[in-house]
Design a protein around this nucleic acid. Structure first.
Length: 175
DNA sequence: AATATCTTCAACCGCTACCCC
DNA sequence: TGGGGTAGCGGTTGAAGATAT
């Protein structure tokens, strides 16, 4: 039997209140991130460490963007997903200010539906990847060689697909 | 205006990777 | 080297808001 990460009766669940957010922010500003397990007690929060970590990373951390994704961000997510699969943390790492949770939600709610509506068969990963990654001729054959796309399969692939450089990246990849 | 249904997204859960002793 | 503790990740859930009837 796995030990629960925190005592059930001692922790709040559900949405965070403004007071809880403030306590967590104040504590992290004063002491920095890390040692999440000890943060709730030290900060006077009735939450488990995991919950604190998630709240900080997804919502409170300075620089986290909220709201609509731009077309360029959406395009990047689609291409990265075709390349990496459901590796949301990796994908989010290429989108400044976006979190894995937000990217995952956006994919599931918006992009997935949009692609299905456009006639893409998301169960047919091979076909989907081929069509999405068609502009990247140089890596196309490699992608088709691996059954499950793995970032480690492309040691020579520059994955610095940060926003604002997509056109340069396309050119570089086509060279 | 009331109710049902759908959509969105914050938060939780369970598993795995990693680190330290 | 392996065992325990912690952090991080991805899948899933459920509450709240939006929209349709």
């Amino acid at each position: 039997m796995r030990k629960p990460c925190c005592k059930e009766e001692e922790s709040n669940k559900g949405c965070w209140s403004k007071q809880e957010d403030q306590k967590l922010m104040d504590y992290i500003k004063a002491h920095g991130e890390g040692r999440w397990r000890s943060i709730p007690h030290a900060a006077g929060l009735r939450r488990c460490g995991k919950s604190c970590r998630l709240r900080w990373l997804n919502y409170l951390k300075p620089g986290v963007k909220h709201g609509d994704f731009g077309e360029d961000e959406e395009d990047l997510i689609i291409r990265l997903h075709a390349l990496l699969g459901n590796r949301w943390a990796l994908i989010a790492g290429r989108l400044p200010g976006r979190t894995d949770n937000e990217v995952k939600n956006y994919w599931n709610c918006h992009i997935r539906k949009k692609l299905i509506h456009m006639g893409h068969d998301l169960n047919n990963l091979h076909g989907f990847r081929s069509s999405v990654l068609a502009p990247f001729k140089s890596i196309g054959p490699k992608i088709n060689e691996v059954p499950e796309c793995n970032i480690n399969s492309f040691p020579d692939l520059n994955l610095d697909l940060t926003l604002g450089t997509s056109s340069e990246e396309k050119e570089a990849l086509q060279d």
